[in-house]
Nucleic acid binder design. Structure first.
Lengths: 215, 215
DNA sequence: GTCTATACTGGGATAGAC
DNA sequence: GTCTATCCCAGTATAGAC
């Protein structure tokens, strides 16, 4: 369905060429959205097809099965998130500043790439981490635990357990998004994804977390 | 399938009597477990039947549909959790002690009634809070927000936003359970539900949260 | 590479005997 | 109240034309 003006090597291309690379990427984008909404089991290949404007059969042509498509989506998300963290250059900052920066950029990324995070939650809840475990090396827990250990050594942070504290930190950051659809009925006139509420959550989380770990 | 020695009024009972009340309760218990594992859409009525030792048809006889059964399970969980909070007598304690007590008892309850909490997460993720919103009046957010407001008035807590802070508190408490199946691969030789890890999580969460809210 | 049409299966729900 | 048998739709996956 996707056309571009020139073939891969820029030679002897007709005006309209089918572009397998672009089609693959479009399917991945649509699948990310569908898996975010429904998880692996709940996702409908038909719904993914509808979003991409290619047919269901094409999805099987490119990815063989719903499961393999899911793994591809998950892997891409893991890699992108990991690169996001690498790009922060946290090693060059004192640990307390590194932590605050990580939290803010991580939350900013989570909001912007809205469809990635719910996939991880569905993955834990419905697949019991079966696919997550294949990619755990790219998890962001290592990043946060590293900052916490450094912060204790540098004297910024109190004595704490890096693993459990990392879970508490991520929990403070992301439970807002996990439970969003439940708690929205508790604050009926607010838009939980609007700028005002997001700012309240993010600033509040930074304050809450930094106080929680500081000496 | 359930038998007891005497009928409701203890009169003219044959040796074995079918007990509708007990059967209903057994179905609810089995359904709670199945819905916790798979959510409404993912739950299999056949699986619930297998756990109860009654047939699938009985479930429809008692509850009409999978959806109505789900609502019954959800409502029972909401009521039990709310009663748990009422029983804590938090009003009789200063706000800081009330908060710590709430956290410990809430987490203790969450561990003991293992199947209730995942239902709420599945509810948010797959049903977008559709059924949760019918029961929001029994949510525990009100309890925590009340403690936070009182704590500010009494001078124990810093200036904070009760709603966002309540979300951060619950996040610190429960994300451990939400993401358990993902993070278990990151700590391969630990049992996340064993007493050691649970103590680490709970004590860590209390410390983290109390520092996060105190003046 | 892309489509249409269809085979096959899992699982919610119900009929009807006892 | 409880069972067995079955209807029927939704949804994954594939065959085969173009």
């Amino acid at each position: 369905m996707v056309r571009k003006a020139h073939g891969k090597h820029g030679l002897k291309s007709p005006a309209l060429v089918r572009d397998a690379e672009a089609t693959r990427a479009h399917i991945l984008d649509a699948a990310e959205e569908e898996f975010a909404a429904n998880g692996l089991a709940g996702a409908r290949t038909e719904a993914i097809a509808a979003k991409t404007k290619v047919t269901k059969a094409m999805i099987y042509y490119y990815f063989e099965s719903k499961e393999k498509l899911y793994l591809s989506v998950l892997e891409r998300a893991f890699v992108q998130r990991f690169q996001m963290a690498q790009a922060m250059k946290l090693e060059s900052l004192p640990a307390d500043q590194a932590l605050e920066r990580f939290i803010r950029e991580f939350l900013d990324y989570t909001v912007k790439h809205r469809h990635q995070f719910p996939i991880f939650i569905h993955e834990a809840m419905q697949n019991k981490g079966k696919y997550y475990s294949k990619l755990g090396a790219l998890s962001l827990y290592g990043v946060v635990m590293g900052i916490l250990e450094r912060g204790m050594a540098e004297g910024f942070f109190r004595r704490l357990d890096p693993f459990h504290t990392a879970v508490h930190i991520f929990g403070s950051c992301v439970f807002y998004f996990v439970s969003r659809e439940n708690i929205k009925s508790l604050v009926p006139n607010k838009n939980l994804l609007g700028p005002q509420m997001l700012k309240g959550h993010i600033d509040g989380a930074v304050e809450f977390i930094m106080r929680g770990v500081r000496k």
